[in-house]
């Protein structure tokens, strides 16, 4: 075991490198979500939103903004770790870390912290953009912030697991396209599940994204379609499981060492 000081120095190095990486390529990492979300706000908030009227007791734009912020956090946390770790594997500079005495926890936390920071930063950017279109009351800051961090953590871990299994660049776009996007779009970002028939509302409740989006919406607006406590327990359990599985992948090294 390394000394705590040595582990901290290694952790700091990893996080610093991760953050500098996404800032260096800000045109690919920070700008696109700002633009996409502005378009969402213009179209769903202003143009179409005015025709939809109220949803869950809020103007339509107020209703969609929390979900859109969360969508940006999820996508960016995931994308940061999956592309950074896969890049390290692909160009083999992951070996720089593997030959050093740094512990597996520190490696995982280093990459994941990078993902969380990018997720939160993009979340903040999107929030600032949103404030040009509507007011956000901030009903419960503690719930808002904790669900935000927990979600960023969970999807950073997801990105890590995806990167470990990926063998080529196609493999790192499959999950965002075929899993994350549908779950998010059907996860109550754009509508309240009260609008759905009983059957589809029931199906929607199997979607973890629904809980995340609603917990966050509760934090900001004070309105949720589901029990916020359930949302925290669920995201918490998924996060613990994803961390344990990531550690298992690192320790056995099956896909990282020959």
């Amino acid at each position: 075991m390394n000394s705590w000081q040595a582990e901290w120095n290694a952790y700091y190095t990893l996080v610093r490198r991760e953050v500098r990486r996404f800032i260096r390529i800000w045109l690919q990492t920070l700008l696109p979500p700002a633009i996409t979300m502005t378009l969402y706000f213009v179209i769903f908030g202003r143009l179409i939103g005015s025709r939809i009227g109220e949803m869950g007791g809020y103007t339509y734009i107020q209703f969609v903004v929390p979900g859109l912020i969360m969508m940006a956090v999820v996508t960016n946390s995931f994308a940061n770790v999956v592309s950074s770790f896969f890049g390290a594997k692909f160009q083999r500079f992951i070996e720089e870390i593997q030959v050093s005495p740094v512990s597996n926890h520190t490696i995982l936390l280093g990459f994941v912290t990078g993902g969380v920071i990018r997720g939160l930063l993009v979340g903040a950017i999107v929030t600032v953009v949103a404030l040009f279109f509507t007011d956000l009351p901030m009903h419960n800051p503690l719930v808002t912030l904790s669900i935000l961090v927990l979600t960023a953590l969970l999807f950073s871990l997801g990105g890590f697991i995806n990167a470990v299994f990926a063998n080529n660049f196609d493999d790192i776009s499959i999950v965002p396209t075929f899993v994350l996007a549908p779950l998010t779009y059907l996860g109550g970002v754009f509508y309240s599940i009260d609008l759905l028939s009983e059957f589809w509302a029931g199906v929607s409740k199997l979607n973890p994204m629904l809980y995340i989006v609603n917990a966050f919406r509760y934090g900001i607006l004070g309105h949720s379609d589901v029990d916020v406590g359930v949302a925290f327990v669920m995201v918490g359990l998924f996060t613990v499981a994803a961390y344990a599985y990531s550690m298992y992948l690192l320790i056995t090294g099956k896909r990282l060492r020959q």
Binding site: A10, T13, L14, R17, E96, S100
Partner: peptide, 18 residues
């Protein structure tokens, strides 16, 4: 990555202060 960063980061992974 820059040459200096590659070498300095490696020192960091070994636990050396920056």
């Amino acid at each position: 990555e820059k040459v200096i960063d590659i070498v300095t980061n490696q020192a960091g992974y070994y636990g050396l202060p920056r």
